Measured scan of single mutants.
Amino acid sequence: VGDQVLEIVPSNEEQIKNLLQLEAQEHLQLDFWKSPTTPGETAHVRVPFVNVQAVKVFLESQGIAYSIMIED
């Protein structure tokens, strides 16, 4: 199991704000291929294997929908 690319769908401005804060966490080494800008629009982010669980827990705790787009 390696890195994953998640497709994330924020449903409101609050969730977009939370994702932008997540993007700013440099220690997570997230690679946003497509940043969140509009509710209902997908964002794509590559998550290093060591941080996959932490990111998924965060998304679930914020009620942000996501799916695994690419499993490496």
Rank of each mutant, 00 (worst) to 15 (best):
Q62T: 06
L6K: 00
H44F: 15
E26R: 10
S67I: 10
E23Q: 14
A54P: 04
L6W: 12
L22G: 03
G63K: 05
D72N: 11
H27M: 07
S67L: 06
A24L: 11
A65H: 13
I16Y: 04
E41P: 03
N18D: 09
E7V: 14
A24P: 02
E41K: 06
Q4V: 15
V52A: 06
V9H: 10
F58P: 00
T42C: 08
Y66H: 03
G63R: 05
S67P: 00
F58Q: 03
V9Y: 15
L6H: 00
A65P: 13
G2A: 08
L28Y: 09
E26I: 12
Q21V: 12
V9E: 05
H27A: 09
I8H: 00
F49G: 11
A54L: 11
A54Q: 09
V1L: 09
T38V: 13
L28F: 10
A43L: 15
V47Y: 01
M69I: 09
R46T: 05
W33M: 11
Q15A: 05
F32I: 04
P10I: 06
V52L: 14
E13K: 08
Q62K: 15
G63Q: 07
Y66K: 00
P10Y: 03
G40A: 03
V5M: 10
Q29P: 03
M69P: 04
Q15W: 01
Q25W: 13
P48A: 06
M69C: 12
L59T: 00
N51W: 14
H44K: 11
N51A: 11
D3A: 13
K34T: 09
I68S: 04
I68V: 12
L6R: 00
N51D: 05
Q62Y: 14
A65F: 14
P36D: 02
L22W: 11
L59W: 01
M69L: 11
T38N: 08
H44E: 08
P48R: 05
H44G: 04
I8K: 01
E14M: 09
K17H: 10
G40I: 02
Q21S: 12
R46N: 04
E71G: 10
E7W: 13
I16A: 03
I16C: 08
T42I: 12
N51M: 10
I8A: 02
F58S: 02
N18Y: 15
A24T: 09
V50H: 12
I68D: 03
E71P: 11
T38G: 07
I8Y: 01
D3K: 06
I68N: 03
E41G: 05
S35L: 15
Q4F: 14
V52M: 10
V5W: 15
Q53E: 13
S61H: 09
I16W: 06
D31T: 15
P48N: 05
S11P: 01
W33L: 15
K56H: 05
P10T: 04
T38E: 09
E13P: 08
E7T: 13
Q29K: 13
K17P: 01
P39Y: 04
V52T: 05
P39H: 03
H27Q: 09
P39W: 04
E71T: 10
V9K: 09
L20D: 03
S11N: 09
V57Q: 13
E13R: 07
S11T: 11
K56T: 09
N18R: 13
V55S: 00
L59H: 00
N18L: 15
T38I: 13
E26M: 13
G40V: 01
P39M: 05
A24R: 12
D72L: 14
H27Y: 12
H27G: 11
N18K: 14
I70R: 07
V57M: 15
S35M: 14
Q29V: 06
P48T: 04
V52Y: 09
D31A: 12
I70A: 11
Q25T: 10
T38F: 11
L6C: 02
V47G: 01
M69Q: 06
L30C: 05
N51L: 09
